[in-house]
């Protein structure tokens, strides 16, 4: 194992499995990926493209059938260090109701560190810090099932933070949330990223990818595009061909270009569009 600067390395990663009917599925095929420390990566792709399968390899919930995955330099196949991998790269899932187990918010957040055998006094301070970090400290004594969707997801994130991870993997954490719930979760994740945590965020909402450092597009178990949001969303036709979309503003910019308007082909936000339509101001 080489000491490297990357948080995640996937080398020739493949994953094959047999369905109940006996047919073989190649869910991932020769995925090569390096995610540097502190990066904010968004993964998009249609249903069945392999996004979630990839995510589950990044904290050893699944094992490669070909190639290998290193998390902070640790091979996920190293059975002795599997808990180290899961503590380094924590995972948040789509449905908040399936992730919260305790009767109060603080007990829920304490669940992970308790399982790690952390001393009680230390757990209390971790729970407090984690709830502060996601803006849920005032809800410490509340029952998780009475919270809103966005609040539940923030508690789920706090539960991961209490394990002091270096990386957080979020598998469609906003799919079941309303616009303000989505915004709460995204702001929380962005803040954690600014504080140095590597973030891998899987989503179907193209507009959530706009502010990422990097967008990875998956299709049919392979990485088909990998670049900055500007580089990726410029390829409107390619994205549409794999069942994806671009943010509404990017789509509008492309249609204006097709109608002969001289406007950049990599516009991602409303403010960029305003600036390019009113250059004087």
């Amino acid at each position: 194992m080489s000491a490297n600067m990357d948080m995640i390395t996937a080398q020739g990663l493949g994953h094959r499995y047999k369905t109940a009917e006996g047919s073989e599925v190649q869910a991932l095929q020769n995925v090569n990926l390096k995610v540097p420390r502190g990066q904010f990566v968004v993964i998009i792709g249609r249903n069945g493209s392999g996004k979630s399968t990839l995510a589950k390899h990044l904290n050893a919930l699944l094992q490669p059938t070909e190639g290998r995955v290193l998390v902070n330099g640790i091979d996920t196949k190293d059975g002795e260090r599997i808990w180290e991998v899961r503590q380094t790269a924590g995972m948040v899932f789509q449905n908040p109701d399936n992730q919260l187990v305790a009767t109060t918010v603080e007990e829920d957040v304490a669940f992970g560190p308790e399982n790690l055998g952390i001393p009680p006094a230390d757990i209390r301070s971790r729970v407090r810090q984690s709830l502060l970090a996601v803006g849920m400290a005032e809800y410490a004594k509340h029952a998780p099932h009475l919270l809103s969707g966005g609040q539940k997801q923030r508690v789920a994130i706090a539960g991961i933070l209490a394990m002091k991870p270096k990386c957080i993997i979020l598998d469609e954490p906003t799919a079941m949330l309303d616009p303000s719930g989505r915004e709460e979760v995204l702001q929380t994740v962005k803040k954690l990223n600014r504080e140095g945590i590597t973030v891998i965020h899987i989503t179907h909402h193209m507009d959530e990818a706009v502010e990422a450092d990097r967008v990875i597009v998956m299709d049919d178990g392979k990485v088909i595009l990998d670049g900055s949001p500007r580089q990726v969303f410029r390829q409107v036709d390619k994205l549409k061909a794999v069942g994806l979309n671009v943010p509404q503003i990017t789509e509008l910019a492309q249609q204006l270009r097709n109608a002969g308007v001289e406007i950049a082909d990599d516009i991602l936000t409303i403010d960029e569009m305003v600036a390019s339509l009113c250059p004087s101001s």
Binding site: Q248, L252, I270, D271, C278
Partner: peptide, 20 residues
């Protein structure tokens, strides 16, 4: 109340604010 309007609606309103 925590809702949004479509991006294109936000765009035309910003353009309007610019005096267009």
């Amino acid at each position: 109340i925590g809702l949004d309007v479509p991006q294109v609606v936000q765009l035309v309103q910003k353009l309007k604010d610019k005096g267009i």
